[in-house]
Amino acid sequence: MGFLDGLRPGKAAEFDSGNAATNSIELTKRHSQVSLTKQGAATGHLRVNLAWRMRTSDIGGSQRESLLRHPFKALKPPEVLGHSQSMVNVDLDLGVLYELQDGTKGVVQPLGGYLGDVNAPPYVKLSGDDRFGSASGETLYVNLDHRDAIKRLLVFVYIYDQTPAFDRTHAIVTLYPSNGPRIEIHLDERHPQARSCAVVMIENVKGEMMVRREVKFVYGFQAELDRLYGWGLQWGRGYKAKAER
């Protein structure tokens, strides 16, 4: 906490309750964690959504106008648009490494069809695999009514079998608790060769459900994230079923 923050009594409360204008909390390096328990949001289904956009400069967008004809428009930064299959061939996937209080460990992800279960262990369910970045993105659900059975959940994003493109892809992971403001984590750091990113840790700390920003990019896949966080799982090469036409 900075010196000036201590002189502003409403600062911490403002962060905990979210931005009044957008009803959201953005986790940053400076404000990296929030308590779902203190928000009164540690019950019900926690929805976690992955969405991403591409910069027009990376997908053949229009060039800047002549300085003589449009001097102000030429200084405008490149527009960011939602992407579609025709624009870019990047397949971002959402996954979770889970560890339960009884020692059970595993993964929920599209690769291999490990979609989980929301009403039975691991109490995490992936809704499906968005291959082309539709407006709804990819979504998973965490059943916090079983929070006492959960030790930690590491939400991660990886690029499936394509050229690394995190430097061209502005991805956002958003958590929607059952109560209170949504929680946003922006993956806007530049790591052009990274293939995976540990985004956020959801952890049961002495009965309190904490959400902590991670945003750690790695150049490998799930096995490298596993080693980084000490999960201890065995990994092999996996494939997706071909998309239906």
Rank of each mutant, 00 (worst) to 15 (best):
Y114E: 15
D5S: 14
F166E: 11
A194Q: 07
R8H: 12
K73W: 13
R190Q: 08
Q193I: 01
Y160D: 05
M87E: 09
Q109Y: 01
H83F: 07
A120Q: 12
M1G: 15
Y229T: 02
E14H: 08
L144G: 08
Y160Q: 00
D117E: 11
F132N: 04
A41P: 06
S24G: 11
V96Y: 02
A241I: 08
T139A: 10
E26Y: 12
M87S: 15
A74Q: 11
L97M: 07
L144F: 01
A194H: 15
A149L: 09
G180P: 04
F72T: 07
G40F: 00
G220P: 12
W52Y: 13
E26D: 12
V124R: 08
V200H: 07
Q101C: 03
Q85I: 14
Y229M: 03
Q109T: 05
S86H: 11
K11G: 01
R168H: 13
D5M: 09
E184D: 15
Q33C: 12
A13G: 05
R227H: 11
D102M: 10
R147C: 05
M87I: 10
Q222C: 01
Q85K: 15
D16A: 09
Q33L: 10
N89K: 15
E244G: 10
V215N: 06
V124D: 06
S57N: 13
V157R: 08
N119R: 06
E224C: 02
N204A: 01
T104N: 07
S127P: 03
E26K: 13
P110S: 10
V157Q: 08
D117R: 05
S17M: 11
S196Y: 12
T139D: 06
N23W: 08
G113Y: 00
Q85T: 12
L27Y: 06
R237E: 11
G103F: 13
Y219W: 12
E14C: 03
S62Q: 15
I150E: 06
V157P: 00
S134G: 15
T174C: 04
V215M: 04
K125T: 01
L153E: 09
K38C: 01
N89R: 09
Y160M: 01
S86Q: 14
V90I: 14
D145T: 05
K125G: 07
L111P: 04
R237M: 10
V218N: 06
R8E: 13
T104K: 07
G116D: 04
G103N: 15
K38A: 08
L97W: 04
L100C: 10
F156T: 02
A51L: 07
E79S: 02
G116V: 10
I59N: 05
G106R: 00
M87C: 02
D5R: 10
L68T: 08
L92I: 08
E138N: 11
V200T: 11
S178D: 14
